[in-house]
Design a protein around this nucleic acid. Structure first.
Lengths: 333, 333
DNA sequence: CTGAAAGCGCTAACAG
DNA sequence: CTGTTAGCGCTTTCAG
């Protein structure tokens, strides 16, 4: 394998010059540069970025840690992050499938050890306390989809409470009174926020949420099926179900279909996320849209800024969700 | 930032010993090891893997290059690859969104420069010639979803021809004669293989494929919509359409719904991939299943073997697809 | 079992 | 514009 030394000898220059040709070509005379470039080509030289990183302490890499990619939510997120990062001339290293706190921490360490310039973290179930500690000791981490007190300038989040309120109000407005929820895990702050705001709004409208009609899922498809089965089996009156992720709404819908419960005629369904497939379902899923693109872009911008100047400096990012009215919620007579 | 030198001084040992504690703890006496570990903890030491990679020329990283993650096909692939890699104690670096040959090549270079132990490549539109050259000069690359002559031991592929034949035969068996296709790009070898085998089988059954009923999409949702619009607008009799990806089938289905063409009553639809959502659609999509899990696992195994011993040595992997009979194809009277 | 010493391939002052 | 010279932080013989 050719190194810059071989190239330097071949071109009759010093290694410093070869390095300059790669990093600051303006500082090298045209003739020398040409000679060096020829030598590189002839020797089939490929720079060793690892060695470069060792001295510069930069890697031009942004790390991204996310949970299971299986759902329809993460894939576009990763995609947009990648696009944004590479438009800025950096590269993205993604660690996916990191769901448990242990895995997240391990991934974090891995990326740090690899000298990632900044890390974007989707914290999953990682408790707020751990997150706070982390943000305090590592300046180049930005958190996506959660807000940590005291570190708001390094967090990008969708306003979960507003989203949930939108959902609650819509169901109320449509005349629903017997309302169930398929939530996320009780340990998940997103889920907790949404559920609280949803219950609040309902209570405010004089329709307190029956705890027996709340099923804790895990945001994934299968738990939507389970949740719906449970709610339906409960025997209580039920005219609408709010699912805290589209993925679970799909599962719920599928279960309804399998047991012959017509949506929205007999049961209304409301999702959260607005993933691509929401619009392709039949009926098209009414859902609370998270601005995923904006979320991803903002996170990358903060990360990039962090990696360059060390300061986040962005405006505090609390993005506003939006209710997408489609066909899965029925207005009661 | 603490380095092994700081740790060594703190623990009163040499740097070599600190290194041994991390890499070959059996070679260090228990007492020394304990002292070193304490020092590490006290100094909040975090090893610099970049420096280690520089000397070992290994990184414990497997690279993965895939195209747009937007579809439902790549996400699970990436997920399974990640699981398999991390079960083997290595890490995964994914470069996604690499669609054009230029991007793929750049990603390849990036990963190589970062000393990835092996690279799994989804070649997308990269022509066979470029791929052959690549495999020849880089011993640690494995190709997923394509077979390159002379390098079969480093390729994992689904048998496209068999899959397409299954599809063709099923449509014929169901009495279809007016058959259209929404294919991938003409430059995409997967697409070409499937299309050829499909047309062959049809011709063999006395139902030659009308070239006017073939629309070249790009495997993505939107092109499925476009393709269906085009085919329907053509005015020729049409009772079934074979889509070379589920994603395009979803687009086609959505278009049909938007213009009131009932599937499968008036038009049958057949997909390729069997992504998770195929079963959630209404009607549930009949499709040719690619064994994605097996595909991913096999690729990782070869990659791992390559990175350890340098030899692929696996059996040649040509995986068999399977027809999933569901509700989107109708048997004609 | 432990230490000394020689790099891995590259960059970054500092001179010239 | 170009070369010299120190390392970056870690691993790895080779002795002891």
């Amino acid at each position: 394998m050719a190194t810059i030394r071989t190239v330097a000898e071949h071109a009759g220059v010093s290694t410093a010059t070869v390095s300059r040709v790669m990093n600051t070509p303006q500082q090298v005379s045209e003739g020398t540069r040409a000679r060096v470039e020829t030598a590189m080509r002839e020797l089939n030289f490929s720079r060793n970025s690892v060695a470069a990183s060792l001295v510069t302490r930069r890697s031009d890499c942004i790390g991204l840690i996310v949970g299971g990619l299986s759902g329809a939510f993460f894939a576009p997120l990763v995609n947009i992050v990648e696009e944004t990062v590479s438009a800025a001339g950096s590269y993205l290293i993604v660690s996916c499938g990191k769901d448990t706190p242990g895995e997240v921490l391990a991934a974090l360490q891995f990326l740090r050890q690899r000298q990632c310039d900044a890390i974007i973290l989707f914290p999953g179930e990682l408790p707020d306390a751990a997150l706070t500690a982390l943000l305090r000791e590592q300046a180049n981490v930005v958190v996506i989809h959660r807000s940590v007190v005291g570190f708001e300038d390094r967090c990008v989040q969708v306003d979960n409470a507003t989203g949930a309120r939108l959902a609650a109000r819509h169901l109320i407005d449509c005349g629903h009174r017997d309302i169930g929820v398929i939530s996320g895990p009780a340990t998940n702050p997103e889920s907790v926020q949404r559920l609280a705001a949803f219950a609040d709004t309902l209570a405010g409208a004089g329709v307190p949420l029956d705890p027996a009609l709340v099923f804790a899922g895990d945001f994934r498809l299968a738990s939507g099926r389970q949740g719906m089965a449970k709610l339906l089996a409960g025997g209580r009156p039920l005219s609408a179900v709010f699912c805290l992720s589209d993925q679970m709404a799909f599962g719920a819908l599928d279960y309804c279909r399998s047991v012959g419960v017509a949506v929205p005629e007999r049961l209304s369904l409301l999702g959260f996320d607005d993933v691509e497939f929401a619009e392709l379902m039949h009926p098209r899923l009414t859902t609370v849209r998270q601005p995923i693109t904006l979320l991803a872009r903002t996170a990358v911008e903060i990360a990039l800024r962090l990696s360059r100047s060390g300061a986040p400096s962005g405006p505090q990012a609390l993005l506003t969700p939006q209710l997408m009215l489609r066909d899965s919620v029925r207005r009661l007579a």
